[in-house]
């Protein structure tokens, strides 16, 4: 499949600090690509390079075949950007903000009015279209930013923490709209801290830490790579000594999770057999028993920790 975004050996230094360190990845057309990492990992720097706000110190990046350094205008013509911090003009109305951005993208007047009306209606902002953005709530501003990013009908949409600090309803609406936009064959580059969001929306995820890519794969494959992180939660009808359970060689770690016992294992079937046998021997009743796959958050923390303990 053709690439919407290609990044090769991209590097950016700020003084002695290497914010982005020779990273490589490509995003396929029509894909929702998640970019995960802790604070200061290099996520925003990468987005700022891809959206033309920063010049890299090394490497190349292209969007829909346009090099962001050599053909910045053409590359930016294909994108829409929702930044982390709201940057709509607060002294203009919602309508004026959209018209301004549309005109800067060279969208024809007729098409621009059509797009603006549709977007404002879709996002529930049409009733307040003539109000100054100054009086908008955070949720309304965030919806407006997404409208502004979509007004030119871009091929690639960059989203930097789009649902950060939003209420549940606004978050759900924004996620729905992102999915809907992607269903039309458009590409989404999503930078987020929110594992659940990445898990729900993304086809593939890159995990970045200390400016380097720690892993790139589908959420399912990332979880499968960390099978030792899967666990079983069991609830007995009586208190048990956790030490006795920990002795089983298939159990890497056992701990209490509320009134349940959580046991980590790479071999769940053997551990289930053991727990059933253990219950019989101790005359206990198993009230509940669940096998849990590792969450994306578990995988994320594992990868970040692995990279941190790796010798330099």
């Amino acid at each position: 499949m053709e690439s919407a975004i290609t990044v090769q050996n991209l590097t950016k230094h700020f003084g002695d600090v290497t914010a982005v360190d020779h990273i490589n990845f490509s995003v396929k057309k029509g894909e929702i690509f998640g970019f995960l990492g802790p604070n200061g990992a290099g996520k925003t720097t990468t987005i700022r390079i891809l959206t033309g706000l920063l010049k890299p110190d090394g490497g190349t990046a292209s969007i829909i075949g346009y090099d962001v350094l050599r053909n910045p205008i053409e590359a930016k013509q294909c994108i829409g950007v929702v930044p982390e911090v709201s940057n709509a003009y607060i002294d203009l109305s919602a309508w004026e903000n959209l018209i301004l951005i549309g005109r800067l993208y060279g969208v024809s007047s007729h098409k621009l009015k059509e797009n603006t009306t549709k977007l404002l209606k879709d996002f529930g902002l049409y009733e307040v279209k003539d109000k100054l953005v100054r009086g908008f709530s955070k949720g309304m501003k965030q919806k407006l930013l997404l409208c502004m990013a979509l007004v030119n009908d871009p091929e690639v949409l960059f989203l930097d923490e789009p649902t950060s600090g939003l209420d549940v309803e606004s978050t759900r609406l924004l996620r729905e709209k992102i999915t809907q936009y992607n269903r039309d064959g458009k590409t989404v580059f999503l930078s987020t801290h929110n594992m659940e969001e990445a898990n729900q929306l993304c086809h593939r995820i890159a995990i970045i830490n200390h400016g380097k890519i720690a892993a790139i794969d589908t959420p399912e494959n990332l979880r499968a790579q960390s099978m030792e992180l899967q666990y079983i939660e069991v609830l007995f009808d009586k208190q048990v000594n956790i030490q006795e359970i920990s002795k089983n060689p298939n159990i890497s770690k056992a701990s209490f999770a509320g009134n349940r016992i959580r046991v980590y294992t790479a071999n769940p079937s053997a551990v289930i057999e053991f727990l059933v046998e253990f219950a019989k021997q101790k005359r206990l009743h198993i009230l509940s028993l669940n096998t849990m796959m590792p969450s994306l958050e578990d995988v994320f923390i594992k990868l970040i920790k692995e990279k941190e303990v790796m010798p330099v």
């Binding site: 706000l53 053409e74 930016k76 950007v81 930044p83 709201s86 709509a88 003009y89 951005i101």
Partner: peptide, 14 residues
């Protein structure tokens, strides 16, 4: 200050 310069620079304008 209002970060709108960033907004403009993300648009296809020099």
């Amino acid at each position: 200050r209002s970060k709108t310069l960033e907004r403009l620079l993300c648009c296809p304008i020099a």
